[in-house]
């Protein structure tokens, strides 16, 4: 072994290289690596958050759909109910209208009958009068027998 001043020279080289590494190599590299680590962590966290939000949104969409479906069902059932009611109402209305028409017709018929009866009564009275005139073969004073004829008329009614 041949120890000499080379040792000192090597120690100087060594010191220089340690200094270089300490000052210019390690800190920027360390910073870059830490930054990257942080960026990756942030990215992963953001991805995770996005996935969660997506799941939440899907859940919300499902809920909305469910709600909408329920609403639609409700509307349909209400409409069905309403249509039933309308039909029922229309039926009732028709029945009432029919009855009204029938009763009006009946009333009219009665009136006609009454009018016919009235006419008949008048005609019968005059017929009877004419008959009596012919039977008696003589003129009867219409004025003198008006009372009697009136009574007869009302008896016929």
């Amino acid at each position: 072994m041949n120890i000499n001043a080379t040792l000192l020279g090597q120690a100087l080289w060594f010191a220089l290289f340690i200094w270089l590494t300490m000052k210019y190599v390690w800190p920027p590299l360390q910073k870059a690596m830490q930054d990257r680590q942080k960026e990756i962590a942030d990215g992963l966290a953001a991805g995770e958050k996005g996935r969660q939000e997506l799941a939440e949104a899907a859940e919300k969409v499902n809920q909305e759909l469910q709600k909408t479906k329920e609403q639609a069902m409700e509307i349909i059932s209400q409409a069905e109910k309403r249509s039933g009611e309308l039909i029922e109402e229309a039926k009732n209305h028709a029945k009432v209208e029919g009855e009204r028409i029938v009763s009006a017709a009946k009333a009219e018929i009665e009136q006609e009958v009454n009018r016919a009866k009235e006419q008949l009564r008048v005609q019968v009275a005059s017929l009877a009068l004419a008959g009596a005139e012919q039977i008696l073969q003589k003129e009867i004073d219409a004025n003198a027998h008006a009372d009697m004829l009136k009574r007869l008329e009302s008896e016929l009614g």
Partner: peptide
């Protein structure tokens, strides 16, 4: 004692300068 091994000094110094200089530029 006051002699220097030029080959050791030069080879190690060159290697170190290339390596650490390169790493420095890269860093």
């Amino acid at each position: 004692f006051w002699s220097l091994h030029l080959d050791t000094l030069i080879v190690s110094g060159l290697l170190g300068l290339i390596a650490f200089g390169g790493m420095m530029l890269l860093a």
